[in-house]
Computed example of a mutant assay.
Amino acid sequence: MLKQIRLVLLPFSWLYACILTLRNKLYDWGWKKSYQSEVYTLCVGNLSMGGTGKSPAIEYLIKKLHKNYKIASLSRGYKRKSKGYKEVLLNSNVEEVGDEPFQFKRKFPEIKVAVDENRAHGIKQLTQQHDLKCILLDDAFQHRRVQPHFSILLTVYNNLYANDFVLPAGNLREPSWGAHRADVILVTKCPLNLSIEKQRQIKKQLQLKKYQKLFFAGIDYSENVVSGSQKLDFSAFNRFTLVTGIANPKPLTEYLDASAKTYQHLKFPDHHHFNTNEIEKLKKEKLILTTEKDYVRLKDFLSEDQLFYLPIEMKLLKHEDKFENLILNSIQRHYEH
């Protein structure tokens, strides 16, 4: 049935792809102008709709870079209830700045975090107000009005952009050949025991350009669940309600199933703002497990003894030093010139 629906939608995808290709060509040819700041900008994005692991990737980069450079993170603040430029503070309202930016600030209070749907304006505001050496552009791969100095393109292990279609027949926000703008292709949510042979197969499917580097990463789950200052052993955490408002909860549910957990799953749309009725229903649940992104939206309404999240980290399968040095060397070359 799904295949038949896609066939019906394919003409609309081709039309949409043509429009997007023309738009990108106008930027490539210089007919539409892109802004590039003097401060180094590193873009993390994808070609598909959500769920590729951008937040863990941004956090991974923050950990690697903030020890050496004064850095900031700039997002659009998807589904926030505000407009324009806003700097994210520890006392910010999560609905006004967005859940992911607030999560970044909460975990890394020493860095600057801001939101602006106009990335060029956001970069200018950040660089005018703060002495920075690197700005991480969250989900800005299609934002062609900004020309980043370095781009990392994420694609999910079991849903590579090379095997997908443009909207509405598929999930791509632009044709797969847009990947040529990336310096690095990072395949996310891989099995941690991914074989070398499978990595070679994926590399062949992606048809990388000579200047592009390929890396593989998986999800590393914490041994504890967390709520405020509390930490509980995950192995003893069982019989709970799982609450998710993320694009793709499947990796999490698969991990819980593999860990033999007993739970019911309440699934909400990505970046969901929980209304009063939903909050009241959740208050009746004895024990809730959620994602860190959902936790920052729910923590003010539910008790610390009731609501917990399972921390995750992005873990490169190999060549972590090579990945880190590639970025550090790129930043160094930028400022040497």
Rank of each mutant, 00 (worst) to 15 (best):
C43P: 07
L61H: 07
K83F: 06
K107D: 05
S82T: 06
R76W: 04
E96R: 15
K124H: 01
V94Q: 15
A114Q: 15
F102L: 15
F104A: 06
A120E: 09
I123Q: 01
Q128M: 14
G98K: 00
F108N: 13
A114E: 11
D138R: 02
K33Y: 05
F104K: 11
G53I: 12
Y40Q: 05
S48D: 03
K83E: 08
E110T: 12
S34H: 08
H121N: 15
L89H: 14
Y69P: 02
K70C: 14
K67I: 12
P109C: 08
A120N: 10
Q129N: 13
C43T: 11
Y35I: 15
K105M: 14
L65W: 07
E100Y: 07
T127Y: 00
S48C: 06
F102P: 14
S92V: 10
L89M: 11
S34K: 09
Q128P: 15
T127I: 01
K81W: 07
D116T: 00
Q128K: 15
L47F: 02
K81E: 13
R106G: 13
V97Q: 05
G45S: 11
P56A: 08
M49D: 07
Q125A: 02
V44T: 09
Y69R: 04
Q125K: 04
K112H: 09
S82D: 07
F102W: 15
N46T: 07
V39N: 12
L47Y: 01
E87V: 06
K63R: 12
A114V: 07
K86R: 13
T52H: 06
I58Q: 03
L42M: 06
H121T: 15
G50C: 13
A72L: 00
E117T: 04
K63S: 12
S34P: 12
G53S: 08
D116V: 00
L137R: 04
V115L: 05
S75H: 13
S82Q: 06
V88R: 10
Q129V: 02
L65N: 03
T52S: 08
K54V: 09
I135A: 11
G84V: 00
D138L: 01
G98N: 00
G50Y: 14
V94G: 12
A120V: 10
S82R: 03
E100P: 07
V113H: 03
K112C: 10
K64M: 09
K124R: 08
